[in-house]
Amino acid sequence: MPTRLAALASVLAAAFALWPLFALDVAWPGTVRDYLEAKGTVESGAMNLVSAIYLGYRAYDTLGETVVLLVAVTGAIGMMAAGSALAPREAGGAPVEPARSPRREARSRQRTELIAALSGKLGAVILIFGLYVMLYGHVSPGGGFQGGVVVASGIVFLALGSHGAAPSPLVGARNLARIESAGFAILLVAACLGVASGKGFLAPPLPGGDPVSFIIVLNAVIGIKVGAGIGLLCVAMLTEEAA
């Protein structure tokens, strides 16, 4: 009961404290919108102004976001690995994995084969669609991150498809980890190119060049890094479950 009481008090207190923010009813300030409408496409080269901000004006935040994702993937996978390594040494109260009945095992194998046949084909298609979303983010909705997530689901499908058969090298956990850390390193190199050319950290590095090319490069690198990272996480979760 004290938990319920605490929850009620927390909710009431939060409602009181945040009420002025929800009651706020002033006209939306148009400074940023007006500026971007006038100059955004010229300065960044992207017709999609959200992409212009995400990978141009505020690419620094996006870098932080990819770092958060990197930490989450590294941390979660590390915990899963530590969990399986430490499990037998756990003192007291360690639950025993419930053994699956043979019938359920057979049924699930049957199902897995069906999924494998379908998803192996589907995975390739999804991967290509992901690449499209990734590379055309500057003109249409989408971009590196969204494309990366689509790529990740393609990877998951490929991993499902390679159940039973020889696993595709692309979706091996080790390779995905390699691709992710390489993607992160390339992202940092791309960010630092501006330092070398004197335009500053995270600035489009080429003098006089079309800034949109920098956004496309960032989109591609982020997409590959995110796709590999999330794919790695999902593949690790799927394989742990199967183990």
Binding site: Y35, K39, G40, E43, Y57, A59, Y60, G200, L202, A203
Partner: peptide, 9 residues
């Protein structure tokens, strides 16, 4: 960061 315009950067 990146030398972008003050209102958005």
């Amino acid at each position: 960061v990146g030398g972008w315009a003050p209102s958005v950067g």
